[in-house]
Simulated scan of single mutants.
Amino acid sequence: MKQEPIQCAVLGASGYTGIELVWLLHNHPQFSVKFAFSSSAREAEPISTLYPQLSGRCELILQPWHSDLLPQLAQQVRVVFLALPHEASAELAPQLIAAGLVVFDLSGAFRLIDAQQHLQAYGFKQPKLDAAVPYGLAEFTQLQGDEPLIAVPGCYPTAAALALRPVSHLLTHDSVPIVNAVSGVTGAGRKAQLHTSFCEVSLQAYAVAEHRHQPEMAASIGRDILFVPHLGNFKRGILATIYAQVQSGISAATIEDTLQACYADKPLVRIVNTPPKLQQVVGTPYCDIYCKMHGQQLIFSVAIDNLLKGAAAQAVQLANQYFRLPPSAGLMNPGAVV
């Protein structure tokens, strides 16, 4: 018998990550988007008004969120995806949990375990919850299906951790991996800002060694890292080049075998034979990883779509795991919106 669809809602649906979530869930065989919410400052409107490419394909009404809608939401959906600013998620997630809803949070509100690190990175106190919040790097997370809240990793940490975690035990004890990563401008969100305007953007490093993703990246990999993010004058995608020192006697074959063994049963990570191009991952849920040895120096080239594998697709991948669905369910055919 066909299963009843799992009703869900997306808050922050007007943004780039939010609209990708809506589109993935709209096309998912097991999930159904009951509500798509935007800021309370907006009027209700068809989602295709903001994203005309969805006209005739997705006729959801984008509704302004108000807290008095929470009782109705709790009665009609089971799962809520938060594609909100960090502080907004921090305030709302505990209310949703208290109402009995399962929350997948794409903000940084609950990614860091250390409260002081969180305060330094995000500038506000992290709410205290009754239960520990799992960090949902999908390929390394085992959800039990009873967690009230799952923290979806950031885009840069996803790219770096998927490369480094399988081989971390093969690195020298004092190795501090260097992560140079370039992101498209959609990583800064949909709000108009001068520094992310295509007419203003050049290839430029920013937040050097102080990006808020650095402590998240270090925690996920299990060692200190040096992270230099860059903003590129393209729309979407992340290309990361990563350097790390391996132990004496570790060969390229050992690295290759370790990566292949780690990802043999993980279909959304592909070990590739040539350095990946962004065009081969943009619009897909894949992470493509290339590695090469130079002496005892290990070099990775990693490509993901920052809005999909780095955000919306990973959230859906985690929801698939939560509900015991195949990891790639609903992720292979919809295509990108933005």
Rank of each mutant, 00 (worst) to 15 (best):
L226I: 15
E200T: 15
A159L: 07
M217V: 11
I304V: 11
K309G: 15
G136N: 02
F31L: 07
E210P: 06
Q117N: 06
Q296H: 12
E256H: 14
P157D: 07
M332P: 02
Y206Q: 09
F31A: 09
G249N: 05
F124E: 05
A138I: 04
G145T: 09
G283E: 05
L164R: 00
F323R: 09
E256Q: 15
R111K: 14
S220T: 12
A151M: 06
Q126I: 03
I221F: 02
L162C: 10
N333H: 15
V201N: 08
G295C: 03
L171Y: 00
K34S: 12
Q116M: 08
Y243V: 03
I304A: 09
I250V: 14
Y16C: 03
F227D: 12
L325H: 07
P148M: 07
Q321H: 08
A261N: 11
H118G: 00
S301W: 02
S14G: 13
S183D: 06
H28L: 06
C287L: 09
F110K: 01
A121F: 05
A160D: 08
L84G: 01
T158P: 01
L259M: 14
P153R: 01
N273F: 02
T254H: 10
M1T: 13
T284A: 05
A181W: 00
S175Y: 00
Y243A: 01
H230D: 10
R236L: 10
A74V: 04
C262H: 06
L62M: 08
A252S: 10
V185S: 08
A319T: 05
L73K: 02
D174I: 06
L50P: 04
I289D: 11
A319K: 04
L268M: 10
G100P: 05
Y322C: 04
D174G: 09
L70E: 05
L25W: 09
G184H: 00
S39F: 06
Y156A: 14
D68N: 14
S328N: 14
E210S: 15
R324P: 06
Q144W: 07
L21F: 06
S168Y: 03
C155P: 08
Y243H: 13
S183W: 00
H230P: 04
L96Y: 00
K191W: 11
V201R: 03
L92P: 01
S168I: 15
E45A: 14
P275H: 01
P215C: 09
I304N: 09
F140P: 04
Q75R: 13
E91C: 09
L171R: 00
T254S: 10
A303Y: 00
Q72R: 13
A93M: 03
E59V: 07
Y16N: 11
S248E: 13
A192K: 14
L308R: 12
A205C: 11
I242A: 00
